[in-house]
């Protein structure tokens, strides 16, 4: 039986975001949002483009600093940590950037070996075995000698996934993993995220605006819009949500609370008045 404090720790969410506000220039990206990411689950963060989903990942990783509020990861306040403590925490977090962010001067093998070489003093034979195991997990053991320029978009994301797993992290954050992928690659990525999360006892956080794929793998979902959490719950609960915001997003409606037209002057101002002006000009000439 686990000691009480360890059991309590295990029950506590891995990520706890409390009253977070973040501003970029004059634009308010997050307005006092709070959310939690439970351990061992896949949590989806959805919302239209530009709602700050990627920004949220960067705030969790400590790459950005909030204007207000706190981000707690595994019991540590990310923005109160020293640089070395933050780097120690990051070694336990993997992140997949939208385009992989693979190091273009290194081969596939060396990309996956990169965190191991930087943070461990393992012998070369062990690094080789570990890298091949990670690459095997994403189905790319045979691609070890390819250069990153030779990879398709989907392969690059799988290599980035293998690299994120290199140090056996507790958390993997996926930034738009499904964007721009063909159906086969989509299926592969969905399966990989689901299977590896279960097999490696990870906690996964998937930021995406691909509704179907995210619904199919997430245990829990948050929907963000206009700097706030507008809905949260299981995929079934989100689908049953009646809020017009959520319905517009989930059903992909062109117009709704997120308007089709970018804010502009009224049609009357733009067309009727300009006709009046041009008529006046013609008369004066």
């Amino acid at each position: 039986m686990m000691p009480p404090d360890a059991a309590e720790m295990h029950e506590r969410p891995l990520i706890d975001i409390r009253n977070l506000s973040f501003r970029r220039g004059s634009r308010l990206i997050f307005d006092d949002i709070s959310l939690t990411i439970p351990r061992g689950k896949i949590t989806g963060i959805m919302g239209p483009s530009g709602t700050g989903k990627t920004t949220l990942l960067k705030l969790i990783g400590g790459q950005l600093r909030p204007d207000r509020g706190e981000v707690w990861v595994d019991g540590q306040n990310v923005h109160a940590l020293s640089r070395s403590a933050l780097f120690a925490l990051r070694q336990r977090m993997g992140m997949l950037f939208q385009h992989g962010a693979l190091l273009t001067d290194l081969s596939v093998f060396e990309n996956v070996a990169f965190p191991l070489r930087e943070h461990t003093r393992l012998p070369e034979s062990m690094i080789r075995d570990l890298v091949l195991m990670k690459l095997n997990a994403v189905g790319l053991r045979g691609a070890r000698d390819l250069q990153t320029a030779e990879l398709s978009g989907g392969m690059a994301r799988r290599v980035a996934f293998a690299r994120a797993l290199a140090l056996d992290p507790m958390l993997v954050m996926f930034d738009e993993p499904f964007t721009g992928q063909d159906p086969i690659t989509l299926g592969v990525l969905v399966r990989l995220i689901r299977d590896l999360n279960a097999a490696l006892n990870l906690t996964s956080m998937v930021v995406s605006h691909d509704v179907a794929e995210t619904l199919s793998i997430a245990d829990h979902l948050y929907v963000l819009a206009e700097g706030r959490v507008i809905a949260s719950g299981t995929p079934q609960e989100i689908q049953a949500e009646s809020s017009p915001w959520v319905r517009q997003f989930m059903q992909g409606l062109a117009d709704g609370p997120v308007p089709f037209q970018y804010p502009a002057a009224t049609l009357q101002d733009d067309f009727c008045l300009s006709m009046t002006h041009s008529g006046a000009r013609e008369r004066s000439t």
């Binding site: 790459q63 780097f87 990051r90 070694q91 693979l102 965190p115 943070h119």
Partner: peptide, 22 residues
């Protein structure tokens, strides 16, 4: 510049590797 624009430097930071040092 290209490493920055392709998020390689940000990726390194998230791998707890300081790009200034590495």
């Amino acid at each position: 510049g290209l490493m920055k624009s392709t998020e390689q430097l940000a990726g390194m930071e998230m791998m707890a590797v300081d790009p200034l040092k590495r």
